[in-house]
Every structure is written in structure tokens, then in C-alpha cells.
Simulated assay, not measured.
Amino acid sequence: MTSPLPPNALMPITPRPDLVFVRGEGAWLFDAEGRSYLDWVQGWAVNALGHSPRALVAALTEQAAQLINPSPSFYNQPALALAGWLTQHSRFDQVFFTSSGAEANEGAIKLARKWGQLHKHGAHEIITFQDSFHGRTLATMAATGKAGWDTLFAPAVPGFVKARYNDANSVRALIGPQTAAVILEPIQGEAGVIPATPAFLQTLRTLCDEHGLLLIADEVQTGCGRTGVLFAHELHGMQPDIMTLGKDIGGGVPLAALLARADVCCFAPGDQGGTYCGNPLMCAAGLAVMRTLGEPAFLAQVRQTSELFRQSLQTISARFGLGEVRGEGLLLALALERNIGAQLVQGAREHGLLLNSPRPALLRFMPALNTTPEEIALGMERLGDVLAECLA
């Protein structure tokens, strides 16, 4: 049992357990009472290399002693280096850095609408998808397909229409003279780790080409090695016009990015900005992370680890009569076939295992990309113990 927290001044924006984490190392978190927890949430797919990895700590330490923030009105070396790395390892030409994935998606929406003004007679509408998740700003909440989010802080930002995921005909039916772009997650994370089919992605690309629309890949959760390749759209050979990155790109620090082809980059000076965009401290961290996970051997290891994790989950599922295992790389989900997700999360925490349940009948797994077979075996043992208790 955890000891109760004293009164605190944090806004209660999420139900937090009564424990305080004070240290992290690799796959592990440690609380103020000295207890250890195997972390299969990792900040919601944020800590690509685990907690406080040496490469990240060294990059932050070195950069903090040199230059932290000269303002986005000037060039700095880490921002130039990270932008160069991203364009060299993708088919995009220009990068705009932000602090969060929502901010990157907001930038993508603005870029698509500016492009529509210039090239599509003022077209501004963007097709999104039911059950999608694109962020918590007013515009990205309107774009999100999560039920009720477009009215939570009414009036909603207009200009978004929702198609059905993996249903190309529903997209085709929504295309009109005001349509400027389509935005989708290659795998819908918050919806329960639902992958887009290869045929659907290819058809979306064809539809956008036929109608002169921009295709935006929201890879905030799926990008940066999470699916075993640098970017999830590469799995099926679909090339978007715009891509957003976040979470893993910073390895735990607030960093995200908006990437686009040169012919799409139509922002004029003053159209876009941000106090911390291209901050050298964050970009130095991002460069250290991307150079590490961009190594072919590292990504090959992610794919190998993914197979072990998937097979272990399938064994757990068969043992307890649960549902399918789905996802790519180290973004995986286990269907529970009953609404016990919240109960399992709480029970696992008491066993020293941190889990995530984005839907009542589902567990989502987002371990560090460099997690080990031994850590996987230990976590599966603890998960099995919790399931046995819950289903007894």
C-alpha cells in the first residue's frame, strides 16, 4: 500500500495514485518510498531509450553548459543538425520544431490551410477519422475523432469532417471543393492500437493525388523507431506530404517536429512560430536520441524484441482466454474481452508493473525500445500474476 500524499497545488487533470516518483533508470522507475516499478508506459511511448539514458543525459549536460535558448529568431547548431538528420533520413525537405505533438499537429493543420488558400481556391477543410487522437489544443481536439471531444470546449473549431478508419469509400464521400487535406495516424493509438491496412493507406495516397489534396501522417506516437522502422508509413510504402513527430523524438524531453516537402512549405515569415521552437537544449537531446535509434542494428533489435513481446502476450492471452494481440514494433495491445483494464492497471502497480489501459477492455504496451528479454520475461510473469488474481 502507498502512503497518502500531503495536500498539493497541482490541478487534478488526471487521477493520480498516491505515490511520487523520484528516480528512473532504463526500464525502471523508483518512488519516494524506495519501491521499484517495471515501466511499460514510459511516459506514453515517450522514453525511447528508457529513463535517463546516458546519451541523453550527456547531450543535455553538454548543451546546457553552452547555450540554452538564444530565441527562435536566430539559428543554433543543434536545431540545424537535427533538422538535417531528419531530412537526410526521410523524404521531407524542411522541419519546424515544437514542444509537443499537439503543437506539431496544430502546425500541420495551419500549413495545410495556408496551402489550400494558395493552391486550392481557399480550401480549408481537413478529413480526419473516427476514434483518432491528434492532441489537446482546441484545433487538434476538433480534429480528434474521440467521441464528445469536438464539443467539450464548445464552440469547436470548424473545418474538420470524420471518415471511418480503414474505409476508403467513407473518405471518398467526404471529398469536396473545400477539402484541403487528410490527416491520419498510421496506427490509432488511443483507439486501442488499430493499424491502418496497407490497402487503405495506398488508396488514401491515390485519392489525395487524384483530388490534389495533402496527406498528413500523424506519427507522434508511431514515429522514431516505435514500430521497428524510423517512421510507420514506411512499413507499407506510403509517402505522406506532411508528417508530425513527437514523444520518442525527445526521449523524455519536450520536443516534437513538423516535416513537409519543399513544395508544401508555404509559411511566410510571421505565419508560424513559438518561444521554444528549435530550442538548442531540446534539439541536442533529440539529435542524441535519433542518432542512437536510427542505427540499423538498433531498429533490427526493436523488431526482434517486438516478436518476443508479441509471442509472450499471445501466450498470456491463450492462458487466460483473452483476445487478440495487435500493433507493430513496441506499440502493442492485448484485447481483454472484458472491462477489467483499470483493475489490471491498479493491480499491476501493486506488483511493481506499470501498465496503460486506453480502453476499458484493452491494455496498451509502450516499453522502452531497448528493453531486454529479461525485463520482458519479468513483466510477463507479473502480468500473469495480476491476471490470475483478477480473474480468480
Rank of each mutant, 00 (worst) to 15 (best):
W40Q: 00
A268E: 14
C208Y: 01
C266T: 09
R338N: 07
A147W: 11
T140D: 05
C224P: 07
P72D: 06
G323F: 02
A48D: 05
D209S: 15
L332F: 10
S36D: 13
F133W: 13
A217Q: 09
M366D: 12
S3V: 14
Q178T: 07
L19M: 03
D39V: 03
A58C: 11
M141F: 06
G379Y: 05
N370H: 04
P7Y: 00
N47C: 12
I194Q: 03
G321A: 03
T14F: 15
T2L: 06
S132I: 02
G278N: 09
P198I: 00
V220M: 05
T315P: 02
P186D: 09
G270D: 10
A268V: 10
Q239F: 08
D93H: 07
V253Q: 09
A45F: 01
G148D: 10
A48M: 07
L259I: 01
Q117N: 12
F320I: 03
F92G: 03
V20H: 09
A333Y: 10
M366K: 10
L344V: 11
V182C: 02
L204T: 15
R303G: 13
D18N: 06
G251R: 02
A199S: 14
P4G: 01
E210A: 15
S357G: 06
P7I: 00
V46W: 11
H236K: 01
C224K: 08
E389D: 13
A257P: 05
